[in-house]
Design a binder for these strands. Structure first.
Lengths: 243, 243
DNA sequence: CGACAATTTGATCTGTCTCAACTATGGTGG
DNA sequence: CCACCATAGTTGAGACAGATCAAATTGTCG
């Protein structure tokens, strides 16, 4: 699959694109760059002049807090545009780092602005993209604020599973979540040790089935129930009417 | 102060507005409505056809999670537009409720869309508004995920203090945060009892000085330090260059 | 004044953290 | 091709931050 197709596929989880929009996207010049695992794609406190798109692999947005602790704010994969806000907010308030080796495309703010100026539909999709991002953040706030360790981890699994499935990135035998237990802890606000113990319980209870970083959903009803998961907050385009 | 002036003042914490933009804002027809304390301004799972603006009093965005627990996602006061996302996302993924008696203005999506279509500058400000909202959510994620009870509560105080000050809503003798300790708990992911004990410690240590819901900052350096607070994430217009 | 809501206090319990060791696992260089 | 090393996962024991339950006290407002 071509790089531009990944972007298009991703944006079409939000709304249907016309041929002219797809053309415009394919015409965007893109600088490609590969990053090693754990490399900083964009660092905290920098100033971006380009937007990045994840082409391959997985990345995470993060923020450092006092005492060397780190918080993971969101998880991203092929087609995701994790720093759209850079278009309007010069100063980065968080960083983006590679969870696996990744290929990233960089598109200058200038070209994006020029393109959306002539393609109202694209501007709308990107606007919706940014707003859905915010909706996901809200959900994470609720998770961290009022859920137990098991609920939090189960919720992350549910979200990643649904988002990957919407992109066709999950196989019948499961989906790949190449995060260490320490990284999952940074995302769930838990210590690595506790993540380990909770995941053991989830496996024993048949909620998930794991082999390395390949996870399968053992029982979706019980997993999503344990997580108190409701996919509405992802605002995925499911019915033609919402398109 | 007129209702429209509150909106203008709020938007000017983001970027400077020209006379033509201010005119356009004043021309927006607005339906006004008063709500009692704890009333639902917009309920979860509804569909909005109007945006709301807080004119007087305080409101909070919230989400309910399993077991009757509630999470407060953000705190809002005069001039805030807490459901801009409704413009592009039909389905509400959270609710908005009144922390105090509030007056709210409702402006239809249609008029807003028509106005920003002819006022590029206004569209930009609202875009920035929504993106700053998301930045604040990210900060809250980091707070909940990797900070202690005292740090979380201190951080909320810092944020509210700075945001209110930027609007001229804090007096020399302090600022009014009319939330019960139970509500603060919903915002910080803590039990009401623990909020109480932590606030007692903050008062004893001179970080804050409280009389009812009127709070004064005892020692900004020590308070912001205890909270690990850095106002960058608020993206306030501080220097003329960023405007 | 009475009543209801909010705050405060005390006692106990528990989920999660921390520290520390041990066991895979996979990659690298000799 | 194997020995080694680093990284991730696992296990155990103990400590602690914050929750829960219950009661007392202090507003505050009709």
């Amino acid at each position: 699959m071509q790089d531009y197709d990944r972007i298009i596929r991703r944006l079409e989880t939000i709304s249907k694109l016309g041929d002219s929009e797809k053309e415009a996207l394919r015409a965007l010049p893109m600088r490609r760059k590969a990053f090693a695992e754990n490399a900083d794609i964009i660092s905290e406190d920098s100033r971006a002049t380009e937007c990045c798109v994840i082409l391959d692999g997985m990345a995470a947005r993060y923020k450092h807090v006092a005492k060397g602790r780190r918080s993971i704010l969101s998880i991203h994969f092929a087609g995701d545009l994790p720093d759209l806000q850079g278009l309007h907010l010069a100063h980065m308030d968080h960083g983006i780092s590679a969870l696996t080796p990744v290929r990233v495309g960089f598109i200058s703010h200038e070209t994006i602005k020029a393109t959306i100026a002539t393609h109202q539909q694209l501007e709308n999709v990107l606007m919706r993209y940014a707003l859905i991002d915010a909706s996901i953040f809200r959900q994470w706030i609720a998770n961290l604020s009022r859920r137990t360790a098991l609920e939090r981890i189960a919720h992350i699994f549910c979200e990643v599973y649904v988002r990957m499935s919407a992109l066709g990135l999950s196989a019948p035998d499961g989906f790949r979540l190449p995060m260490t237990q320490a990284e999952l802890g940074d995302a769930a606000g838990l210590s690595p040790v506790h993540v380990n113990r909770v995941m053991q319980r989830m496996r024993k209870d048949g909620l998930i089935i794991s082999r390395g970083d390949l996870h399968a959903v053992g029982d979706w009803d019980r997993l999503s129930n344990a997580a108190d998961f409701d996919e509405n907050y992802l605002h995925l385009r499911r019915d033609p009417i919402a398109a």
